[in-house]
């Protein structure tokens, strides 16, 4: 019994950690959608690119003699975030500006194309083989009352919580954060009060790319690094929809719920009910449909039908 309980707790924590990463991807995705109404199907690939860039930095820095390992990880993260800032601004320039007011279909095609291009380009740069990214924590665990929890998972959860707190502060207490909300609510009114709307859009893309990068950096040591890891980003959609499409807290809640469901169904549930194994891949989608049947606007969504 305690055995199962300990196992289940581990799974839940691991699921929350995975869910935090889904949440970060869904957050970036929701942010872009809310502010610019662009549905960015390349959000998972942005995460993949961020993870690779970080990996390149880490690999290079670990070669530097005298550089302590932890510092290598910190500097690499700073480097990856700096890259994300530039790359986000670049995406704003090539995707958002030309396509913002174009038909939804063109925009979707553009972001799908972007996803394919990013995968191909990264495959050329990084080579086809899967990489094993070094983790600053190795496979160490922390034990709480007999339950062993991976240090990496704890770190992921902690980072996500800190990040969400930073966002909360940004969106509710800073001028530029409030301006982002204002712009996504009513772009015309934002123009009329003097908010530099184009800069806000650029910041949204930068923000979204940075979040995706951090998600990728956290995810890479859990899975492996390959150019198809962006497909995981597809799970940002059910996460975003589950929580309530267009709702930022919803994206976070939806992501975490998905991570937990997935991990527990793959672990304990599959162990006790072997048939669950067969539906593992689709279980989050089943839950998604069930939730939408009860609450069409998602868990934290408003009953706002006109946009979706």
């Amino acid at each position: 019994m305690t055995e199962t309980f300990g196992g289940l707790t581990q799974e839940v924590v691991s699921g929350i950690a995975l869910g935090c990463i889904y949440a970060l991807i869904a957050l970036g995705f929701t942010l872009i959608y809310k502010a610019t109404e662009v549905v960015n199907f390349a959000q998972g690939e942005l995460m993949m690119v961020g993870a690779y860039v970080n990996f390149f930095f880490v690999s290079a820095l670990l070669e530097v003699p005298l550089l302590n390992g932890v510092w290598a990880f910190i500097i690499a993260l700073v480097g990856a975030v700096a890259f994300a800032v530039l790359f986000g601004a670049f995406l704003d320039l090539i995707i958002n500006r030309p396509l913002k007011d174009e038909p939804v279909f063109s925009v979707i095609m553009a972001t799908i194309s972007l996803a394919i291009i990013l995968r191909a380009v990264m495959a050329v740069i990084a080579g086809p083989m899967t990489r094993i990214p070094p983790s600053p924590f190795g496979s160490s665990v922390i034990t709480f009352g007999g339950v062993a929890i991976s240090t990496l998972d704890m770190f992921i959860i902690l980072s996500a919580v800190v990040l969400v707190m930073v966002f909360y502060f940004f969106f509710n207490r800073t001028k530029w954060g409030i301006a982002m909300k204002a712009t996504s609510e009513d772009p015309m009114a934002a123009h009329l009060v003097g908010i530099p709307v184009k800069k806000v859009y650029r910041n949204v893309w930068i923000f979204s790319m940075v979040v995706a990068t951090i998600g990728g950096v956290l995810l890479a040591p859990r899975t492996l690094l390959d150019t198809h890891m962006g497909f995981l980003g597809l799970k940002a959609f059910p996460a975003a929809v589950l929580g309530g499409f267009g709702s930022i807290p919803g994206a976070i809640v939806g992501g975490v719920i998905m991570g937990v469901i997935e991990t527990v169904s793959m672990g304990t549930l599959s162990f006790h009910f072997p048939w669950v194994k067969e539906i593992n891949d689709i279980i989050v989608w089943i839950v998604l449909i069930a939730v939408l049947m009860i609450r069409p606007a998602g868990i934290l969504g408003h009953e706002e039908v006109d946009r979706v």
Partner: peptide, 12 residues
């Protein structure tokens, strides 16, 4: 801006 507070509207 309906989802911002009155204060935030003025700040904007």
């Amino acid at each position: 801006f309906p989802e911002l507070t009155v204060y935030e509207n003025l700040i904007m």
